[in-house]
Structure formats: structure tokens, C-alpha cells
Write a protein that binds this DNA or RNA. Structure first.
Length: 1157
RNA sequence: GGUCGUGUAGCUCAGUUGGUUAGAGCGCGUCGCUGAUAACGACGAGGUCCCAAGUUCGAAUCUUGGCACGACCA
């Protein structure tokens, strides 16, 4: 029955259908050759070409910045971005994938500054904007090669050579077009914004930068009296930790809903108003007794005027009033207002407001301003210059750095009697991350804004139509962010960015926006183009795109259309680089100056995916720009510019940290190499600084791109945070990739031995069912054996689920299904079919069925996993189709995605087979429990089913169970007598709603009742009753569930559907049979020890004093000889090299000599 | 401080509209197989489903309040 390896060796010399495959597979090596194959045949392009004219599936690439090395997080993004376009392409869509690069912005400038060893803005100016920009432009491509390499190595199919680049002229002009549109529609305006300002460096810091520089510091904490003219001898007690902002005070804020107390301070003979909850605390600080005279709600204080502690502005404007929109007049400043951000957590419950130096303060000013008729409200007071020093508006402190002035200001408050209490306050305060000792200040700067708030409702409506994965992003993080939308602060006082395309008239200050370079230079009186021309002349390598950048674009001026003597100059700002990337839906085509057709066909995107950190980044910038630009167009429906968005989780690194010295290790170590401390596992944020992750290339080289991809796709839904651990990646290989590979190599091994030749198919193509049907010896599925039908049924069931899940962007569930199918394929189909592959007759129909079934399954699985693991599937496909000499589809990636043929899904068979597998598993479990190893044959098992429906079918599979369980007989019974107790439990789902509160009592009634009686009644009459509290509850068959309980004293195992009971009685004959198997095992071990070839035939001598063993071997000589390839078996005195072994109490000596052929 | 998310086995994670025996893989242990063989397979141990209260006949699942962690924002 078994085939000799020598035949296999011989078959190698014949023409074989498949290249033999190495069981010691190296996936990385295979992948390299597949990459080569794809490149040679331009397979990606072919996959597109064959879909031209089909419905499009539009993918937008969120542009990465290539000025840093790619890290594992980028692998995940790129893997997901590859998966769905590949899948959709196979499903028949036309899916072009244009790459893109984000190139502008502060991070690029910072990199260049680092390289130049400078950091302040002045230093950039000193170095020269022109060479600086040129450096930025080239620095952007610093790691380009690594990015392209990663992209290709990961198998991310994307058009790199036609990538869009945000600094390209066409891109910039497209962005200009959108800005001009906004400008012309009045959506672009200039306003103030309070930003974190590095005064010494003269630049703003982004929130990310600010976040890096927090330090714990002690600041003065001052409690200041703000006298209330309307209340005699009474002050509002106000608290601040920035005394330097007091000269700029404009309001005091209270919370309308907090209770405020008027307290009397006998030592000062003065009344103070502050939050009632804080009276004790402040009294304690002052070490005084404060008497509460009355309390009131904050709302009663709102509107009162006060005298600020400094009168630099108050003396001229203190009594200024303005007309309210609601009618009436009110003081424009130095008035108590309400603000709900005021709390009693610290301070006094009354907050000093200096709108110039606090973002919330500023918002308060803006909302105050809105209450007044235009032009009559409060104006911003800012007596500090951008260098952080007081101006002459505050003569007492003029020229002092504000933080230094804190002391003098506090002293002055003391002198004037305004200071009530001086304390210290410890808190976190931001410092410049580049100049450690420079505290940042909040400071107002002029900035250009996009009026996104006008479109809030439209953006929300647009958002509602987007399919977010995970769903909670829609109304959670992203929705909330939209709800609290503020106008987009667009401009940056920097150098390397898209210039804001607004030109101002030198005479009138009137402005216009332009949207192309050609339009600019064609303007009447346009001059300054020579600056670029000269730069280009002296360095012909300069890329043409730089001419639309600073400083060249700034050099160009033209005659003002607004005033005959005026000149138009560009405003100095560049724009936020997020605006660049958010414009890609149209700017990637240079729309509308060019690419109108492309835009029309590829807007909006069906699919995008980025990580969670893009919520306020690219996801928002795209949605905002798109909604503002196209939201009013009746022809463009929501959602746009993207329909489905997978929001990826953040990637964590697995590391090991020493508990003692905090030293970090990438690999697991037993003890800290630095201090010998205990090292424990820790997952934390990936960080370049900690170097707590392995470079992607190392993973590719050791485990391969498919391993990494499959790990990403199959181990968790993509939106959970993913731990990037080499260990985990490695461990996920055997479960799927290797298991599939083993099945495949098993197939190749035997197909070659038997000369199975699939090239008999007349038109192979994609090896679909119709093509296969023409093969030699191919029989329709229905005519094949049960195992084959079962496998094909499972296969189609799998395809059905996988396509359903993938259509819902659920790659995780799809992979789970594929994994379980490959498990069934390997551990049931192949395992149970092995002897068919070993069958003697090469033309045996049953054998050919096995080949065709496995071949079809492998080919189909190949196609099904192609989007997930493109390399492995290609490698298998190439070999499966090798013999067809080009008549089959060139690449698996040019195939259509396999769809389920539902007529081949046999649910009954599927159910039965899983029952059979369960019984086998129970049998093994019972053996384990009874400590009866599988090698020991048993006389039989008894299977007790709790539902006899499938018994007849099972009985036809006795042989299978006999082999699996090594028993001589299998019997089924429904009356298990002593083995089993029937337990009848209520069907809670059905009975629960019906009996309601009676349920617990029903439950105990069931427990008390005799299961057998109920079952009998049910099987005879179809119903039964059970008594609860004197009430009768009618039961139908659906109302109960039967459970079997294996009784004590039997070697039995119970499952959900059956109990399997072993016959444990061992006859001498059974024991001898088991002993023989033990001998086989020992001999095989010894063969291995002797390094014998698997094909070597031997002469075996066994010497033993045990009569029983002698008898066993004599009875089973043929079996023994067959198993160990022995030409002869002797029971003599062992000679030559012998080993002594024992089986239980039997000892034996074994000697082996290789038999000559 | 706010918002969002997460908390289930040693680890990484599933868990469908609430239904009473909570799953998978890895790891670990025991064993098997030795013609897929530097593989492979079976079985097993391991859980206060973060805590508490509530709703319900019934809660890992729903509600509320805590706690812890993470992210974003302030």
C-alpha cells in the first residue's frame, strides 16, 4: 500500500509536472524571486490593463513624508492600503493606485536646520532663504530610496513613477486654485490667533512641539483685589500665575453656576468676593478668620465693572462704553463676564483675563466683541512685542522680558495695596524644546483663516455618510472634533511651504488671489521673474518647481489694478502643510488647470486608510476642503472625498525593560546586562529614541513580507493597537503560511511520484471549475467520495464568508476563516486522504479524485489568498501551472477572485463531518484520561449520541474511526444504559420569555426531574409537562436540551453532542498487538539513530527473554517487517551492534544490519 | 481637566440582537506519530470576563458610578 521513496527518486528523473519543493522553505528567498518575476513581466501594469473600462475602484494614497526612515507603522498602513485594491482588482474593478509624497512643512525645515546647525528664524534669514529652500527641496528625498524599497519589498503595488508631489508646480497651482476660490467667496480672512510663541526665536511652535517641552516649574501665584466701584469697600478677589499679564487685563471671569461669598477681612477692614467653596482654603492660607457675610450665584456678579490693578489702558478707556447689538450700552472692558471654564479647583473662582496671552481668554474677547455693534466692542490689548518684551505702552516695565518682570510687577501690586496674597504654584509649563531654558508664552499673531465654521453642518452631514471602521470614529473622535470646529488657521510664518497666493496693493491694501504662475507673470507690469531666471542660470540643476516657492515667487510684483501708483506684492506667509495633503483629491491631477477627466473619474475615493493620528490631520483636511469646495454642488453627493475609511490603531513595540536601571532590550534577556536586575516584558509606544523596534528590512530578510502582512491582517482587527513583535510575527507563521506550504509540498511530492499531470486540461486559463473539468480523470464533484465533496463544500463555504467579510472591509474575519479552512485541509482532508495518495494503481479513480480535489483546492486557495499574501500565492500558482506551458494565466494576480459556488455547499455533510471529528477527538480524550496510549489497540468504542439523526451516516465511517482511535470495533447506541446519565436542561432562550419570573424555579424543577422520563414522553407524544409551584408547564421538543453525562467508572469522554466510551478490557491478543507496535517504534527510533536512509531495507534481529514479546512478534511478523522495511525478522541472539531497550517490564536487544539489494 | 477608546487564559486577541458548559492561536504540560519528518498531530491545565451598584427570570454583553491603561485635545 505504501510507496517507496526510491520510486520518488526515480520520478525525479522523469518529466515531472511540478518543481519539487523544499520542505525547509525560505519564504524570503522565494519572495525575492517573485519580485523579480513581477518586475520582468510588469504584472502590476497587466493587472490594471486588463481592467481598463471596468467600473473603477478609487483609492487615495495619503502621502507620507520621505524625509525620515520608514518604520514598522508604515508597513501596516501600506499593507492595508495594498490589500483592498488588490482584492477589488481581482473582483473585476479598475483600481489605479497613484503614489504621493508630502514634502512641505516645519518638520522638513527642522531637519535642514539640524543639518546646518542652526535653529532660530533669524539664523535661517542669515543663511539665506534661497539656499535654505533649495536644501529643503533636496532633503525631502533623503530617504526616498528606502521608502521605495520598502514599498516594493512589502509587495505594495502603487505607481511610484507617477507619484504626486506636493511641491510640484502643478500641485501648488491646484492648491492655489482652491484658495483663490475660497478667497473670492470670502472664506479666507485675516485674524488673530493666540499661539505658543518662542519669543527668543521669534517663531510659533506647533502643538506637537509644545507637547515635548513641558517641565514642572514653580510660578508666583498672586491673589489680587479688583475693586468694585458699585459695592462699597468691596473687591473681587482674582487669581493668576502670570503676574506679567495683569497690565493687559481686560476682563474678570466668573462661573454663573458657582456660589460666591462676600467675606469680611477684619484685618484689612475690607470685603472680598470669591467662590464660597474656597473660603476656608484661603482663610487658611492667610491665617486669618474670614467672615462670610452673604452669598450669591456667579450670575449676579456678571456685568459689574471693576478697577484693574494697572491703569495703563484703564486711565484712557476705563469708562468707554459701546452699543450692544441687543440694545443698550455697556462698558467695553474691565467688567465681570461669565465663562463656564471657571472652576473652584484652584485659585478663587474668579479668573483674570488677558486676551492677548491666553487662548481661552482670547475666545472670551471674541465672544464679547460679538455682543457689540461692529467697531464698538473691546479691542485687543497687547503691550508686549514679539521679542517678549514690554513696549512703551507699559512704561514702568518697558524693555523687560515679561517673565523677568513678574517680580517687579508683584512688588508694584504690593505697593499699591492691590495684592492680597502671594504664594507659589507648582505646575507643568511648556518650554522651547530646542532651547531648554526659554519658557514659551501665549502670544497673539496675525494669521489667515479659512472659514470652516460656516460649513460645520455640511461637514457633519458629509461625515454621516462615510463608512468609518471602526464605526465609533464617526460620532466619536471625528464627529466630536467636527462639532467643536474652529476656523482653520491656515498661514505659517515659515519658508518651505505652498505660498499663500494673495497679492496686496501697496497703496490701497486691497487684495486679490491668483491661481497660476502664468497668470502672475502675464499681469501688467509684472517684474522680478529674473530672480528665478538667474538662479536657474547659475544652477541649471534646480528643479523648475521651485519657481513657485519662496523666495522666487515673492520677488514677482505687478501693477495694482486698484490704484495706478500701487504695486501688488505677495503676502509673506506660506500655508499649513495639512492643507496641501488635504487637497490631494484634486491637486494630484493638477485640477482644474489639467487632469479634469482624471478628477471626474476618480472622485470621490472608495477607500482610504491611515492611522488614528490622522483624525485631525489628513481625514479632516480632506473632508473640510472637499466640503467647502464641492459641498454646494448638487451633482456631487456626500460622502466625499472618501467613502470607506479604515482607521488603523497605533503600533506598539514589544520590549524588555530592566526593573532596576530601566535599560531597554529589544530581545528577551534573562538578566539585565547592565546591572543584573530583573527584566520584564513591556509594550510601549514605538520610539526612534528608544530604538525599541526592529527595522522592517530585518523582518523581511528573516521571515518575509508575507509573514508580516499576514500577521497584520490575521491577528487582530486593524483598528486595535498592534504590537509589533518579532516573536509574534514569527509565531504566526506555522499556523497558516507553513501549514499551507506543507499541504502544498505534500501534494507536489506525491503528484510527481504518480505522474499526476494537470496539463491535460484543454484551456487552463485561471483553472476555474469549467477548465478543470476537461482534465484527464477528472470526475464531477458529485461523483467523488465524501471526503472530497466535504472539502469542496468547505472550500466554497469559506469563499462565501471571505468575500462577504472582505466586502465589508473586515480583513480579520476573512483571515480567521481562511486559517480555519487551511487547518481543516491539512489536519483532516490530507490526514484522512493519505492512503489514497499512496494507492498502488496510478489510474485509480479514487486516487485521481484525490489529486484533482487537492489540486483544485490549492489553486483556488491560491487565488483567495493572493491579496493577503501575494508572494506565497504567486509561488504556489507558478508551480501548479508550470506544466501548462503558458496556457494558464501568467500570474495569480491576473486571476478573478474565486467566488463561492453555493450549489456545492453541503451543510448536512459539513455538520456530520464536524460531528465525526468531535467523536474522534472525544475518543482520543477518553484514551488520554484512561492512560491508554493510541499504540495500544482496544477492542472497541461505544458512541452515545444525544441526537440519533446522523447515526446511520456515522456508521458508514467506522473504518475511519477505527484507524483514528486504533480500535477494532465501533458501536453506536442511543440507549447508553449504565454509561451515561441523561440530563435535560431547559432551553432558556425559548422558555425564558414564556415563563418569565418562573424561570429559576423551572430550572430547579428540571434539575430535580428525571431526564429519562421527560425524554420518553417527548419522543412518544411530542410533549411533556413539568410541575412548578403547582402549575403545569407544557414542554415541546424545542423547549429542552439534552446533555449527556458520562458516568463514573467508565473510560469515557463527553462532549456537546456525544459521549464516547472505551472498552478498556485488554485481551492478551490485544496486548501483544500493542507490544508489536511498541517494537516498531523502537526499531524506527534506532534506524534514525543509525542514520539510515529512509529507503534502506534492513535485517532485523530482536532478542528477548520475554515469552509474551516473542509471541507478539511471531504473531505480527509481517506487520512489523512491513513497517520497518525489514527483509527478514529474526528472533535470535542479537549480534554485532545492539541496543538494549525496554517496553514496560519487557527488555529486548535490537540489532540492525542494512540488507544488500 | 475634557473627549474617545480599551480592560476576557501566562501572552496576543475573538465573543453576532442578553440565554446559563466564555472561545482561538501562541506559550506551557502530557502524550502520540515517525513515508508531509529540522515537520506533524492529539489531549490537558489555565478565567472573580477590572471593581461596584442597577435593569432583567437571566449580564462578559445593557445602564450608572469608580479604577487602570492608551490616544487625542486643553
Amino acid at each position: 500500500m505504501k510507496k517507496l521513496l526510491s520510486e520518488y527518486m526515480a520520478s525525479k528523473n522523469q518529466k515531472s509536472s511540478f518543481d519539487p519543493c523544499d520542505t525547509n522553505v525560505s519564504f524570503p528567498k522565494i519572495e525575492e524571486s517573485i519580485l523579480e518575476f513581477w518586475k520582468r513581466n510588469d504584472v502590476y501594469q497587466q493587472s490594471l490593463d486588463q481592467r481598463v473600462g471596468r467600473e473603477r475602484y478609487v483609492f487615495y494614497e495619503g502621502p507620507p513624508t520621505a524625509n525620515g526612515k520608514p518604520h514598522p507603522g508604515h508597513c501596516l498602513t501600506r499593507a492595508i492600503k495594498d490589500l483592498f485594491p488588490r482584492y477589488k482588482t481581482m473582483r473585476g474593478y479598475f483600481c489605479e493606485r497613484k503614489a504621493g509624497w508630502d514634502t512641505h512643512g516645519l518638520p522638513v525645515e527642522v531637519e535642514v536646520c539640524k543639518e546646518l546647525g542652526i535653529h532660530a528664524k533669524e539664523e535661517i534669514e542669515e543663511y539665506g532663504v534661497e539656499p535654505f529652500i533649495q536644501k529643503c527641496q533636496s532633503s525631502v528625498w533623503q530617504y526616498m530610496q528606502q521608502w521605495e524599497q520598502l514599498t516594493e519589498r512589502l509587495g505594495f503595488w502603487v505607481k511610484l513613477d507617477s507619484a504626486y508631489v506636493t511641491y510640484h508646480q502643478s500641485y501648488v497651482e491646484s492648491v492655489w486654485w482652491s484658495l483663490k476660490t475660497f478667497f473670492d467667496r470670502g472664506l479666507l480672512y485675516k485674524g488673530h490667533k493666540i499661539i505658543w510663541w518662542w519669543a527668543q526665536g521669534g517663531t510659533a511652535l506647533s502643538s506637537g512641539e509644545v507637547g515635548q517641552g513641558y517641565k514642572t516649574v514653580k510660578d508666583p501665584s498672586v491673589y489680587v483685589k479688583f475693586p468694585l466701584p458699585d459695592k462699597e469697600n468691596t473687591s473681587l478677589l482674582v487669581w493668576t500665575t502670570t503676574p506679567w499679564t495683569l497690565p493687559s487685563n481686560q476682563f474678570a471671569a466668573v462661573n454663573e453656576n458657582i456660589q460666591y461669598a462676600t467675606v469680611y477681612d477684619p484685618e484689612e477692614d475690607h470685603y472680598l468676593i470669591f467662590a464660597a467653596d474656597l473660603v476656608e482654603k484661603i482663610a487658611a492660607k492667610m491665617k486669618r478668620t474670614l467672615e462670610v457675610k452673604s452669598t450669591c450665584k456667579g450670575s449676579e456678579l456678571v456685568g459689574l465693572n471693576y478697577q484693574p490693578p494697572f491703569d495703563y489702558f484703564y486711565k484712557t478707556n476705563g469708562n468707554k462704553t459701546g452699543t450692544l447689538k441687543s440694545g443698550g450700552r455697556e462698558n467695553v472692558a474691565w467688567r465681570i463676564t461669565s465663562a463656564n471654564f471657571v472652576t473652584t479647583d484652584s485659585g478663587t473662582g474668579a479668573v483674570h483675563e488677558a486676551p492677548a496671552f491666553g487662548e481661552v481668554d482670547y475666545e472670551l474677547l471674541v465672544s464679547e466683541k460679538e455682543r457689540f455693534v461692529d467697531g464698538q466692542g473691546p479691542e485687543l490689548i497687547c503691550p508686549v512685542s514679539p521679542n517678549g518684551k514690554f513696549t512703551n505702552a507699559v512704561p514702568d516695565f518697558e524693555g523687560q522680558w515679561v517673565k523677568d518682570a513678574d517680580k517687579a510687577i508683584t512688588q508694584k501690586l504690593k505697593d499699591s495695596g492691590a495684592l492680597y496674597l502671594l504664594d507659589q504654584y507648582e505646575h507643568e509649563y511648556p518650554f522651547c524644546w530646542r532651547a531648554d531654558d526659554d519658557p514659551l508664552i501665549q502670544y497673539p499673531r496675525e494669521s489667515w483663516f479659512v472659514k470652516t465654521t460656516d460649513f460645520k453642518d455640511k461637514m457633519l452631514a458629509n461625515n454621516q455618510e462615510i463608512n468609518w471602521l471602526p464605526e465609533h470614529i464617526k460620532n466619536g473622535r471625528f464627529g466630536n472634533f467636527l462639532e467643536s470646529n474652529v476656523d482653520w488657521s491656515l498661514s505659517r510664518e515659515r519658508y518651505w511651504g505652498t505660498p499663500l497666493p494673495i497679492w496686496v496693493c501697496s497703496k490701497t491694501g486691497k487684495m486679490e488671489a491668483l491661481d497660476s504662475y502664468d497668470e502672475l507673470i502675464a499681469k501688467p507690469g509684472a517684474t522680478g521673474m529674473e530672480v528665478w531666471a538667474e538662479a536657474k542660470k547659475s544652477n541649471p540643476d534646480l528643479v523648475e518647481d521651485l519657481k513657485v516657492h519662496k523666495p522666487y515667487i515673492d520677488a514677482i510684483t505687478y501693477d495694482s489694478p486698484f490704484d495706478d501708483n500701487g504695486t501688488m506684492n505677495r503676502v509673506p506667509e506660506v500655508i499649513d502643510c495639512w492643507y496641501d495633503s488635504g487637497s490631494m483629491p484634486f491637486a494630484q491631477w493638477g485640477y482644474p488647470h489639467q487632469g479634469q477627466q482624471e478628477f471626474k473619474e476618480q472622485f470621490p475615493a472608495n477607500f482610504i486608510s491611515e492611522a488614528l493620528d490622522q483624525t485631525r490631520g489628513w481625514f479632516y483636511s480632506q473632508l473640510a476642503i472637499s466640503t467647502l469646495l464641492f459641498g454646494d454642488d448638487p451633482d456631487i453627493k456626500f460622502p466625499h472625498p472618501f467613502e470607506n475609511c479604515i482607521v488603523l490603531g497605533l503600533m506598539m513595540a514589544e520590549g524588555y525593560v530592566c526593573a532596576k536601571c530601566k535599560h531597554r532590550f529589544a530581545d528577551q534577556v534573562k538578566k539585565c546586562t547592565q546591572c543584573g536586575g530583573k527584566v520584564s516584558r513591556k509594550t510601549e509606544k514605538m520610539s526612534k529614541r528608544l530604538r525599541n523596534y526592529r527595522a522592517p528590512n530585518e523582518i523581511f530578510d528573516q521571515h518575509g513580507a508575507d509573514a508580516l502582512r499576514w500577521y497584520f491582517f490575521a491577528n487582530q482587527p486593524p483598528w486595535t493597537s498592534i504590537i509589533y513583535s518579532e516573536r509574534a510575527i514569527k509565531e504566526s507563521i506555522p499556523e497558516f503560511l507553513l501549514r499551507l506550504w506543507n499541504v502544498y509540498s505534500f501534494f507536489v511530492l506525491y503528484a510527481n511520484i504518480d505522474g499526476f499531470d494537470p496539463s491535460s486540461i484543454s484551456v487552463p486559463g485561471q483553472l476555474d471549475a469549467a477548465a478543470l473539468a476537461t482534465g484527464n480523470g477528472y470526475r464531477p464533484i458529485q461523483q467523488r467520495g465524501e471526503l472530497d465533496r466535504w472539502l469542496i463544500s468547505e472550500l466554497n463555504q469559506t469563499l462565501k464568508v471571505v468575500t462577504e467579510r472582505m466586502d465589508n472591509y473586515d480583513n480579520y474575519a476573512a483571515c480567521t476563516k481562511l486559517t480555519s479552512f487551511v487547518d481543516s485541509l491539512s489536519n483532516w482532508y490530507v490526514r484522512r486522504s493519505r492512503d489514497r495518495f499512496w494507492a498502488e494503481d496510478k489510474q485509480d479513480a479514487n486516487k485521481l479524485d484525490a489529486y484533482w480535489t487537492l489540486f483544485e483546492t490549492l489553486a483556488t486557495v491560491c487565488k483567495a489568498i493572493a491579496p493577503f499574501t501575494p508572494f506565497l500565492s504567486e509561488a504556489v500558482w507558478q508551480n501548479l501551472t508550470k506544466s501548462m506551458g503558458g496556457a494558464s494565466t501568467l500570474s495569480v494576480h491576473l486571476c478573478d477572485y474565486p467566488m463561492a459556488n453555493e450549489t456545492l455547499i453541503d451543510e448536512t455533510l459539513s455538520r456530520r463531518m464536524s460531528l465525526l471529528r468531535e467523536i474522534a477527538s472525544l475518543g482520543l480524550s477518553a484514551r488520554m484520561n484512561a492512560k491508554l496510549k493510541v499504540r495500544q489497540p482496544l477492542s472497541g468504542v461505544t458512541v452515545v449520541l444525544n441526537n440519533p439523526t446522523d447515526q446511520a451516516w456515522l456508521e458508514t465511517h467506522d473504518d475511519l474511526l477505527k484507524t483514528e482511535l486504533n480500535v477494532r470495533a465501533v458501536t453506536y447506541t442511543t440507549d447508553a444504559g449504565d454509561y451515561v446519565t441523561y440530563q435535560v436542561v431547559p432551553n432558556f432562550k425559548l422558555l425564558g420569555p414564556r415563563v418569565g419570573k418562573l424561570m429559576p424555579k423551572v430550572k430547579s424543577a428540571f434539575a430535580a426531574a428525571d431526564g429519562k422520563t421527560i425524554l420518553q414522553s417527548l419522543s412518544q407524544t411530542g410533549k411533556a409537562t413539568i410541575e412548578v409551584d403547582g402549575q403545569k408547564v407544557e414542554l415541546s421538543e424545542q423547549d429542552v436540551e439534552v446533555r449527556l453525562q458520562a458516568n463514573e467508572g467508565w473510560a469515557a469522554a463527553q462532549g456537546v453532542q456525544a459521549v464516547v466510551v472505551l472498552s478498556t478490557e485488554l485481551t492478551p491478543e490485544l496486548i501483544r498487538s500493542g507490544l508489536t507496535r511498541d517494537v516498531v517504534r523502537l526499531v524506527q527510533d534506532y534506524r534514525k539513530e543509525l542514520d539510515l536512509q529512509r529507503t534502506d531495507r534492513i535485517k532485523l534481529t530482536v532478542e528477548t527473554q520475554s515469552d509474551e514479546l516473542n509471541q507478539a512478534i511471531q504473531e505480527n511478523t509481517d506487520f512489523l517487517a512491513g513497517e520497518v522495511l525489514a527483509k527478514e525478522v529474526n528472533l535470535n541472539v542479537a549480534q554485532g551492534d545492539t541496543v538494549e531497550r525496554a517496553i514496560g517490564e519487557h527488555t529486548l536487544k535490537i540489532s540492525i544490519t542494512v540488507a544488500q539489494e
